[in-house]
């Protein structure tokens, strides 16, 4: 009888599995957010220096809480510059993440360009971060929504996390891409490489400054 009971449990478990798989496939087939059954790995695209460093930029003082040099939004004046009008879509799941290297990050910082966003958690940010970076962790992205809304959509933004294994930076890039930020770059090797290279770090008692 013990065996019969076990057999019955296995049969029922199989029924549950088949029912779940059936419902999942039917839902996926009709859902607007349906996924392809075979997933492709995230595409990372190296960014050429000519894309990052050959732009005319306009100094904007309107970014709340920041002094970054940004590219103006798309309007007639901006269209005169190729920055805004031709700014490529930085991150889409079908086009990939645009990756910047340590050298490119150093050069951008040296030129005072770009808005740096630390995608790690607030306590990790407080222990040390890249100078002038803001902290917007994907885990608390809703709290920062209004802060993000206030940033011009074609601001040059560099997001970083711990290292290429850390998904929080990519998740934040996805989120900001959906908000139509289209000048996003991912410093993929992130904080770990920054510290290992002996670069300057800044500490903060607050997580969101």
């Amino acid at each position: 009888m013990k065996t019969m009971s076990d057999t019955s449990t296995v049969r029922e478990a199989f029924i549950l599995l088949m029912l779940s798989v059936f419902l999942a496939l039917v839902y996926n087939a009709f859902s607007q957010k349906g996924l392809s059954l075979i997933r492709k790995p995230p595409v990372k695209i190296a960014t050429a220096d000519s894309i990052l460093f050959s732009r005319k930029e306009v100094q904007m003082d309107s970014i709340p809480g920041g002094k970054s040099t940004v590219i103006p939004p798309e309007h007639e004046r901006a269209r005169a510059s190729r920055d805004s009008a031709a700014a490529p879509v930085a991150k889409k799941k079908d086009t990939g993440y645009k990756i910047v290297t340590l050298d490119q990050v150093k050069r951008l910082m040296g030129e005072g360009r770009g808005l740096f966003i630390d995608g790690r958690e607030a306590n990790e940010y407080a222990q040390g971060h890249i100078k002038s970076a803001r902290n917007i962790s994907y885990l608390e992205v809703d709290k920062h929504f209004e802060e993000l809304v206030a940033i011009p959509r074609d601001t040059l933004i560099i997001i970083y996390c711990h290292n290429p294994e850390c998904s929080l930076g990519r998740d934040l890039a996805d989120f900001m891409s959906q908000m139509e930020f289209h000048n996003l770059y991912l410093y993929d090797k992130g904080w770990d490489e920054w510290v290992a290279s002996g670069m300057a770090v800044e500490k903060s008692s607050s997580g969101n400054k």
């Binding site: 549950l16 029912l19 779940s20």
Partner: peptide
């Protein structure tokens, strides 16, 4: 990576079905 989507589609429904049952 190739199996991630199948897992991500099936597991929530298995959770739901088992939970309801």
């Amino acid at each position: 990576e190739a199996l991630v989507n199948i897992f991500a589609l099936a597991v929530p429904w298995l959770e739901l079905v088992c939970g309801v049952f």
